[in-house]
Structure formats: C-alpha cells, structure tokens
Computed example of a mutant assay.
Amino acid sequence: MLCVYINNGILLSHKNKEILPFVTTWNDLENIIVSEFFLLGLSDDAELQPLLCVLFLSMYLVTVLGNLLIILAVTSDLHLHTPMYFFLSNLSLADISFISTTVPKMIVDIQTHSRVISYGGCLTQMSIFILFGCMDSMLLSVMAYDRFVAICHPLHYTIIMNPRTCCIFILVSFFVSLLDSQMHNVIVLQLTCFKDIEISSFFCDPSQLLNLGCSDTFMNNIVSYIIVAISGFLPTSGIFFSYYKILVSILRVPSSSGMYKAFSTCGSHLVVVCLFYGTALGVYLSSAISLSPRKDVAASVVYTVVTPMLNPFIYSLRNKDIKKAMWRFLSRTISA
C-alpha cells in the first residue's frame, strides 16, 4: 500500500521520494489510501537529536518513577486508604499512561531515525492520548468534589464518599473518557483522503489530523469542538462549583489558623488544576494566534510531558502524609 503526500502540486511517494503523475481531481485522490503519516517531531537539526533523546528519556523516567512511587506509597500504607489518596493514585496511573502514549514513540523515532507512523497506529495513539487526557480532567473534577465534601460536609464525609461511590466515580470517569476518545476516532475515520501526511508534532494530534483532511471538514470540526466543549465544560464546571463552595465555607471560619488548615487540604490539588488547565488553555490559545507550527509543538510539550512530571512533586512536597508514606515505603524496601 502506497503512502503519499502532496508537495507544491506534485504527488510524491514518501518511501522513495519518487515523483508520480499529478492527480487532477479530488475524486482521483480519494482512490489513494494513505497507510502512513510522517511526524515532523520537535526539530530537524541532527545535532539536537541526541540531546532531545536524553532529555525526554530523563523526563519520562522521572514521571513514571514519581507517579509509580505515589501509587505504591498509597497502596502500601493503611493511613492513606482514604478517598482523596485513592483518587490521587488513579490520577498518577492516568499520568503514567498519558505520557507513555507519546514520549516512548518519539524516543524510538529519534533512535531509529524514522518518524513514520502507520495509519492504524496513528488512530490508536490519538485515541489513547484523548482517553487518558480526558481521564486526567475527570479525575481532577472528582478530586475537587471530594475536597468539597471534606470541607463543607465533614460529618457526612465517610457516608457520602464511601468505597462504592468512589469506585463509581472512577468507572464513570473512565467510560466518559472512552466515549470521548472513540467519538474523535469516528470523526477521523470519516475522512476519505488527506491533502498531506506530514503532522507538525511528535504525536498524532487530533486537531491536526482533522485539518489534514482534503474534504470539507467544517462539520467534523464543529462536532469535534462540541465534544471538546462537553468533555471540558463538565469537569471544569464541577471544579469551579466545588471551589466556590469551598471558598464560601472557608470564609465563614472565624480564625485565620482554621482558614489556613481548611485551605491547605486542597492546596496541592488546586496547584495541579491550575497547571493542567493553564498549560492546556495556553497551548490552544497559542495555536489559534500563532502561525508557526513549531511554536505550537513546543507549547504542547508542556501539558503532554511537563505537567505529568510535576504532579508527583507537587503532591509529595506539599503533603506531609505522602512524604511520610514514601519514606516508610522506601525504608521497608531498602531493609528488605
């Protein structure tokens, strides 16, 4: 199966750069099946490739080890068997899966000097990327609700946030995220041809795949924006509502020490929320304003790589229970 793209009005073969006869109509182009895409990556400079490989491999290992340490600390310490840390361990698992969708492929591409990804592999990567990205967003909303119940209804906390309810929250978050990813997948599958196979990123960005369609993608873009609005609006509205209620409740506390104690229980989560949504919003705003695809790629690194890497540090440095649990886990591991 031949993989093609159009460059300056000439239909080229990516595999051997052979110049083929130019296709005069879109109907002719629709008969050509694209089997591969070409990821442009972060840089074309050959001298930078080893540095990028070492940098992203280090960031990937730090992310995986940091989030894995949180999961092991939470599961091994009975003091952390609470809804808040249960959701935190699931967030760490989602972060590991989220970064594992893109970074290992980029490292392999640098080592093999190949940036080709198959059509099926591209759709699979896009689906998994959206799945765990949406899962992160849903879990942050659930964690905000957990903090709302803990601060505003402390006497009923154990009744409301019982194990059954916590598991239902996780399952609902997963299935909503799965539905979101599959709807994006269906939209891309409806594209009958592509005007280019070069993706200006180091992974299969769903928005870029839609823009590569040679047919009219207006309706697909509208549907995609509606899906993003729903999947983004629901979690963010839940977070804003929870923190509005939390703020109102904290302001009613008479002493400043009581206000600080109440707010400190959700400080780490609030920092992670600002980091996640702030970087994601910044990427999409920059992509809408900027005309340089390279700048958009550099900005996407922040929320796809940097944010999952920083989450374990934020929770471990600002949370005494996590730090104690980690030290106990490490002490038992070393002594054993």
Rank of each mutant, 00 (worst) to 15 (best):
S76Y: 07
L2F: 12
T63P: 02
N67V: 02
T307P: 01
T236P: 00
S35M: 05
I32R: 15
V228L: 08
T24H: 13
L48F: 13
L155Q: 12
I160Y: 15
L140T: 04
I128Q: 10
N27P: 03
F37G: 07
V142D: 12
T124Q: 09
S249Q: 12
N221Y: 09
V23C: 13
V4W: 13
P104W: 11
Y5C: 04
L155C: 09
I32G: 08
F329I: 00
S92W: 01
S177K: 06
F129V: 03
P21I: 03
G238L: 10
N211E: 12
M138Q: 15
I151L: 14
L61N: 09
S331E: 08
F129K: 01
L88E: 03
G66A: 05
K15A: 11
I239W: 09
I199S: 05
V302Q: 03
S287D: 15
M135T: 05
S118L: 05
A298N: 11
S97C: 13
L11F: 12
I10S: 12
L80N: 04
L51A: 13
Q190P: 00
F329C: 12
L209I: 02
L39S: 07
L291N: 15
V248T: 07
A73T: 06
L51P: 00
S43T: 14
S43G: 07
E30N: 08
M309H: 07
Y145Q: 02
V271L: 14
I227M: 10
Q125N: 10
D44I: 01
